[in-house]
Design a binder for these strands. Structure first.
Length: 584
RNA sequence: GCGCCCGUAGCUCAGUUGGAUAGAGCACGAGCCUUCUAAGCUUGGGGUCGCAGGUUCGAAUCCUGCCGGGCGCACCA
């Protein structure tokens, strides 16, 4: 049940009536007509801008049209009051029983409440994390991981068929460096004194395990070999080991991808050739020489003819090279293959979650997707800004290169996966995020994780008390939905129901705008409304949830708080966060 | 130099895709604990929405130009 959607239909029906009787012209475009919750509760339950949007094309004054439309809306069974306000808004107030009906349907819908058919089953591919397999995941990776996972869950709830994908960058020079670093540790494992790790190698301790494992499996067979012999095997072994590590880290965050695509395998299978073929067929590949970048030319810049993709035809700033100077494919080329592959597997909407340092890459990839899919595919890139990790306000140093970094695992061990996940979603992904290890464990309103979880726990606590005090009241959703909900008459009770009624709308807007953080703010609002009600009962005993000697009223209030907990749980589920039964 | 993102209360940030008198938390002022969990609640002050134009019934939101901050800028990934 989605009141805003339902009443949009009601408004449209009335507008069509006005078209039929000739009051409004026949060719009127109703697409901009909206029915929304007004910002100010004094403006009623729902508001529509219909008269404002249609007045001009219809050639009438907004207020006049509003009056005409208002008259018709007054006749609707669920509408208790209609007023025309401001420049021509129509504010609707609905009978309490309508909102009681909403609560009942929320309870009956259970976990599926908030599900939408917005996506109509269309396929969406969400690619996230895709970290190079050269070390354990860091807190920075975690943001992309959580944002991508939540976005995927939101798309799924909004009715899309979602694939969660991880693209393994296992083909570039970085994994060769990894292989050499692992080989060094392999020699070390076999008793060799390797001394200080030379620069240009990954120094991390975690590679010791890899070296030892390789030594345990293969013994000294690689020691006397030249690099060309051992490197491919060391590389394969190291990548496999580190991907296992990455998968473990992701599992600790509760994240599981559906598909892992290997860049190397994709290239070997001719993925880039397919890209080239597609682009050449459209005349989008040529040989040319690029201008050096203005302002900050690289020292080793030399004008040189290159194989280029006409990215400028699709809004990019310059055409992009497809081959490196040694003739091998650029990262961009293989990533194009990756995107073409995802598209050919059926996803016309592609969502990529990237770190801020890849911001300059967005235009070319969008251009590539447009070119490769002849405009049929759409790429949305969610850029995640830096996470500033602090402890009591003091920055915690992170440096992957130096090997002395804060791993995701350490942070999870300290504060728990649910806290990490929730906090990562409390900001727009393209804004920097402050993550204070001390603050996120505080039990105060200042800490959104706690505040939202506490709302859920508080409901469960009251339900437990109710079981003791009112053993006759069954607490299942169906029974509560059938209780005397008309006893819910307090303005704050009704306001809470209206807020709960916005959940489907919120899911859709988060999906349409690719903004998972909206869910976090919504949950905070729901928690605040609930806590407010709880406190109101402290001052006014008649507003408590459990009313001695009045099981009917108590059941109705239990329905309200159970519905609240259900929506909170639904939102947390989208975030991959477990709602708690009690605070400890 | 160019591109992308950002600029909203003292601080940290929302702002329903262009709507009505711009909101919340923290901090500050004033109140509130015999209670279903005070791990909180109520209430007050606090704003040229970076600046200047433009678009229109209507702009924090869209366009242009500035100012300030972040990221990026052949052949890395």
């Amino acid at each position: 049940m989605n009141p805003y959607k339902d009443f949009k239909e009601v408004v449209k029906t009335e507008l069509e009536g006005l078209i039929q009787d000739g009051t409004l012209p026949a060719d009127l475009d109703l697409s901009r007509v909206a029915v929304e919750p007004p910002r100010d509760a004094a403006h009623g339950d729902l508001a529509t801008n219909a008269a404002l949007v249609l007045a001009k094309p219809a050639g009438v004054k907004p207020r006049d049209l509003a009056d005409t439309l208002a008259k018709r809306l007054r006749g609707h069974a669920d509408v208790s009051d209609v007023e025309v306000a401001g420049p021509g808004f129509i504010n609707l107030r609905l009978h309490d029983r309508y909102w009681h009906g909403c609560l009942a349907s929320i309870l009956r819908a259970g976990a599926s409440y908030g599900d939408s058919d917005l996506g109509r089953g269309r396929a969406v591919n969400v690619e996230y994390v895709s970290a190079n397999p050269t070390g354990p995941l860091t807190v920075g990776h975690a943001r992309g991981a959580v944002v991508g996972d939540a976005m995927a869950a939101i798309m799924a709830k909004a009715g899309f068929s979602v694939t969660r994908e991880y693209y393994i960058n296992d083909a570039g020079t970085q994994v060769d460096t990894l292989a050499r670093s692992a080989y060094l540790r392999y020699r070390e494992a076999l008793g060799e004194e390797i001394g200080e790790i030379p620069s240009g190698y990954y120094p991390g301790e975690y590679l010791k395990d890899v070296g030892q494992a390789l030594a345990a499996r293969d013994g000294p067979k690689w020691l006397a070999q030249p690099e060309a012999e051992w490197l491919p095997e060391a590389r394969r072994f190291a990548i496999d080991s580190l991907m296992d590590l990455v998968r473990e880290d992701l599992a600790a965050l509760g994240i599981e991808h559906d598909v892992f695509t290997s860049e190397r395998a994709l290239v070997e299978a001719g993925g880039v050739d397919a890209v080239l073929k597609t682009l050449e067929a459209r005349g989008l590949v040529y040989t040319g020489t690029l201008e050096p970048p203005k302002g900050k030319a690289p020292e080793d810049w030399e004008p040189r003819p290159q194989t280029l993709f006409r990215a400028t035809d699709f809004g990019d700033d310059v055409d992009r090279p497809l081959r490196k100077s040694d003739g091998s494919w650029t990262y961009f080329s293989s990533d194009m293959a990756n995107h073409l592959d995802k598209y050919r597997r059926g996803a016309s909407t592609l969502i990529d979650v990237w770190g801020a340092d890849h911001g300059g890459y967005v235009k070319r990839m969008k251009a590539a997707v447009e070119a490769l899919t002849e405009g049929q595919g759409r790429l949305e890139v969610m850029i995640c800004q830096l996470v500033k990790l602090t402890r009591q306000g003091v920055p915690v140093k992170m440096s992957k290169r130096a090997g002395v970094f804060v791993t995701l695992r350490e942070v999870i061990d300290e504060v728990g996966k649910d806290v990490v996940r929730f906090i990562m979603l409390t900001r727009k992904n393209d804004a920097p995020l402050d993550f204070d290890l001390t603050k996120v464990m505080e039990q105060s309103r200042d800490n959104p994780v706690f505040y939202v979880q506490y709302a859920h726990a508080r409901v469960r606590s009251v339900m437990r008390h109710a079981q003791e005090a009112f053993p006759a009241i069954a607490q299942d959703p169906e029974t509560l939905a059938n209780s005397h909900l008309h006893f819910l008459t307090d303005s704050d009770e009704l306001a809470l129901i209206r807020l709960l009624a916005q959940w489907p709308r919120l899911v859709e807007s988060a999906a349409e705008t690719f903004e998972p953080h909206r869910v976090a703010f919504y949950l905070y609002d729901v928690a605040a409304a609930f806590h407010g009600l709880w406190t109101k009962g402290k001052d006014n005993t008649r507003l408590r949830f459990l009313i001695e000697g009045n099981p009917e009223l108590t059941a109705a209030r239990l329905a309200l708080i159970r519905g609240t907990a259900q929506v909170v749980a639904s939102g947390l589920d989208v975030f991959g966060v477990q709602p708690v039964e009690e605070m400890r």
